[in-house]
């Protein structure tokens, strides 16, 4: 009898086999997959480079600014970089299908550039990184953040110090 119950259940449920590759694959939302980088929200703190156990992340200074590279073929999808990133500039997508022919080996890289800018106060050349103003009290308005962003690190500190806090 037991055999018949199992048989009936299997008839009702269909096979356990996943449809992939003949159909879409089941992908959990929080699957640890390919790294994605958003240069606009990066603070340039380089913590992700330091905590990466596989040395998959490289920052480099170039005449245009600071470049970011994450090599998908070295990354071990541990999630350390996302965990330590203060601004969520780096994050893990749930994209797992990274298989590629060997000729494309060196194209498997996430690239980003934090461009140089000229400080609006002193005219010095500095990186256009996202400002580190998370702990500022009271929180900065969007315009204030943009103003801080347009300055070099020294002038940013000055700006925040001289900022008039509404009573």
């Amino acid at each position: 009898m037991n055999f018949l119950t199992i048989f009936a259940r299997n008839l009702k449920q269909g096979p356990q086999t996943e449809a992939f590759p003949l159909g879409p694959a089941f992908t959990p939302d929080r699957l640890r997959g390919r790294i994605e980088f958003k240069a606009e929200s990066c603070e340039g703190c380089r913590i992700c480079e330091r905590v990466c156990p596989a040395n998959a992340i490289r920052f480099a200074k170039t005449p245009d600014g600071m470049t970011f590279d994450c090599w998908h073929n070295t990354c071990v999808f541990c999630g350390n970089c996302e965990f330590y990133c203060p601004t969520d500039a780096i994050h893990q997508t749930n994209d797992w299908d990274l298989s590629h022919v060997n000729a494309d080996k060196f194209d498997m890289v996430e690239h980003g550039l934090i461009p140089n800018q000229t400080c609006v106060d002193c005219g010095a050349t500095a990186l256009n990184t996202a400002p580190m103003v998370k702990n500022a009290k009271p929180p900065l308005s969007t315009e204030e953040v943009a103003e801080v962003r347009a300055r070099c690190p020294k002038c940013r500190a000055k700006y925040l110090k001289n900022r008039k806090v509404p009573a």
Binding site: P21, L98, S99
Partner: peptide
């Protein structure tokens, strides 16, 4: 390893999930 053995398809991941291996085998 491609310094010693000619490699045709790469499946990155540590480890890659079974679906990714299937995709690589299909290639």
């Amino acid at each position: 390893i491609d310094q010693y053995i000619p490699i045709d398809v790469n499946v990155p991941g540590c480890p890659p999930r079974p679906q990714a291996i299937i995709a690589g085998v299909a290639k």
